[in-house]
Design a protein around this nucleic acid. Sequence first.
DNA 1: CAGCTTAAAAGTGAATTCACTTTATGGTCC
DNA 2: GGACCATAAAGTGAATTCACTTTTAAGCTG
Lengths: 244, 244
Amino acid sequence: MIKDTSLLADANGQIVTEDDDSPSLVDEVYQKLLLRIIRCEFPGGAELKSTQLAREIGVSRTPVVQALARLQADGIVIQQKNHRAVVREGAENWLLEIHELRLLLEPSAAAMAAQRIPESEVARLQTLAAEVKACQQQYEDGNQSREHLQKWGAASRAFDYALHLAIAEHCGNLPISEAIHKCWSYKRVSYSAADESPEIMTRGLYDHTVLLDALQNRDSETASAAMTMHLRNASRMRPDRLIV
Amino acid sequence: MIKDTSLLADANGQIVTEDDDSPSLVDEVYQKLLLRIIRCEFPGGAELKSTQLAREIGVSRTPVVQALARLQADGIVIQQKNHRAVVREGAENWLLEIHELRLLLEPSAAAMAAQRIPESEVARLQTLAAEVKACQQQYEDGNQSREHLQKWGAASRAFDYALHLAIAEHCGNLPISEAIHKCWSYKRVSYSAADESPEIMTRGLYDHTVLLDALQNRDSETASAAMTMHLRNASRMRPDRLIV
DNA sequence: CAGCTTAAAAGTGAATTCACTTTATGGTCC
DNA sequence: GGACCATAAAGTGAATTCACTTTTAAGCTG
């Protein structure tokens, strides 16, 4: 039928297809629904009808059904057989509560990763950290322009993401790693254009540096503590917003 | 999410339709595949072709594709677009590693639940505990017959399940609750005919009693510690088996 | 007009179909 | 014989279709 797939990346404009692989329709639908749930466009108790959503989004029912199944597996949506899927009560706070989950997982993961992350990986992360530092310098030197701030923000987020995911990857426990990945995939939904303030980014870079040093020194205790502090800081610095 | 507590699939996953609601085909296929992966029938790196599996299981490709998607969301299987799904390397240890994840989640969940679990729920769990105790007595009084042992085992498992899930349910954090549920859904796959020894069950009942008392007294510290001990015991008591 | 019945509409689970991509096979050339 | 390439077979993502269930709304009875 119609095979033009290029009009998608508008919602949050984050994913640009790298050459070969565009995400599957299921992924896109899943992302869209998740975003709308987190934004309370679909509040708790709302009914998600696959037929209606399919019409609305402009795809067939098949990928919608699969996306709903994934939301159900996540626990965000409940659906009993032959009934419509409904958004779970309390799903609005999902991101907030995910942060608490991270507080249980990531410190331990950091401790575990400190014992086994390869040096090459630490080195890679350190170069990323240096890049962030450089961007920060550029911003401060170059009359604090909005342009430089954005660049700094991008580098900061890239480093953030890479560090936390590297820790997950090298913690040596697959389900824990997957759980952390999932937390970040939720976080990512809200990333869109969330520009951080310079204060937050400075603080974040400091936290991350401490953490990275601990990893390099194979110091599990410190790594765990640093991660805990980092996560606590993040939630303390913005107690108001849903987007953590 | 988990709705019917009564159905335990046998080795082949044959499920008799109790009452009115049979699980969807997707669920059945998912369970079957998961079991076969955990049993290393599909070792790490094995290719899972939806067409072939569909033929083999005797359903259409649709539910198989959905089951594979769920396995992918779990992180047990990896599949890039237009390629076959492959079992993730290291998936054999999934259950073992899930136990480590529980060790991160459940103690905190117990502490949280101690502050907010309703008394009625505690009461319900206590009656279940009493039933287990009664079964134990029957077993010891009545010349330790295999029959009584099985009954005791069933009661023990029911209580185990109810207690841990109640804690998850009342911890006040949806994603954490869901994560624990997921751990148990994996554990459940291996439950089949895993008869426990009387020693393990006695120890388990003791652990659970301590935990339940802590919940009743709203004592988070003790609840957390008791849960930690309980989980440590469980892994210590059977360091050999895959089935935790 | 409330309450029950029931037919139409909408929705769901699962099979089938279709366009396209990857993998396997067989033959040619060096 | 082994590298290379065309072509067939198998596999995949997604749309469509079909049988069945739930919801909705109208119609009927008292």
